[in-house]
Design a protein around this nucleic acid. Structure first.
Lengths: 126, 126
DNA sequence: ATAGCTGCAAAATGTTTGCGCGAAA
DNA sequence: TTTCGCGCAAACATTTTGCAGCTAT
């Protein structure tokens, strides 16, 4: 994979978010620094970065469009239904369960797609 | 909500699957018994059934299209990366974690979107 | 020089919707 | 008879792709 200014900007932008943006949101943000960039390029580079494991796809936060995450180690998400904030949490919480599932179902867990939806601490203060 | 033969068939078809089919798959199946049915009707009725809580939407099994599930109590899924089978499992496994998360993050968990991907027992016997 | 990457526009895919007709209450 | 649901086709939203020109190596 060859260097490109577009890809660098896309990655930097994604890193600067803590909200797991959509391709469209990344596009709008990058466009401010490089007005000529196209949405197709954003999609192409996000897919490339996912392929080489530099970033992660997060499906199912809402069903309409895919979100991306610059944190590339396995982890899970808390999604606040009120303020739409996404909080990263460690997988350590869930690791003990893998063994239980192996025992009960003989199923060998390899990946965790876990999103817990609810109300974050900031939104409970009333 | 008024009775319709189409909706009845769609629901029966979904129930008969144990693989959490897409709208398209349900459509193709129902079409055999009622060739005049349209894909739009399938989508409309699936959305209706989700709204009244008779069925459930399962996002994120694969990112392309939404899958549906006739089991309408909260539960989680094991997805076999080899044979693409979906196994339902109880949420009881994860319930204790809600309390831990409340303690550590002050986050009040309300819904669980959990898909564990890996290799099922049938596919391990190589 | 020559891959590989870009912008652009068109296409592909999945889902929703407006309309006029037919069926359930 | 009135209202809701249907089939159809068009519209929409998101993502992918073919192409001709530009850019990093």
């Amino acid at each position: 994979m060859r260097y490109s200014r577009q890809r660098e900007l896309i990655y930097e932008t994604l890193e600067s978010f803590d909200t797991h943006p959509t391709a469209e949101q990344i596009y709008l943000h990058v466009k401010k620094k490089m007005p000529s960039i196209s949405l197709g390029t954003v999609y192409r580079n996000l897919n490339l970065l996912v392929e080489v494991g530099k970033i992660i796809k997060v499906d199912s936060i809402d069903s309409s469009s895919t979100r991306y995450d610059a944190r590339n180690d396995e982890h899970s998400h808390l999604y606040c239904l009120n303020c739409k904030k996404v909080i990263d949490i460690d997988l350590d919480f869930f690791k003990p369960i893998d063994a239980e599932i192996k025992k009960e179902f003989g199923f060998e867990v390899q990946e965790h797609d876990i999103i817990l939806k609810g109300i974050c601490s900031d939104c409970q203060t009333n």
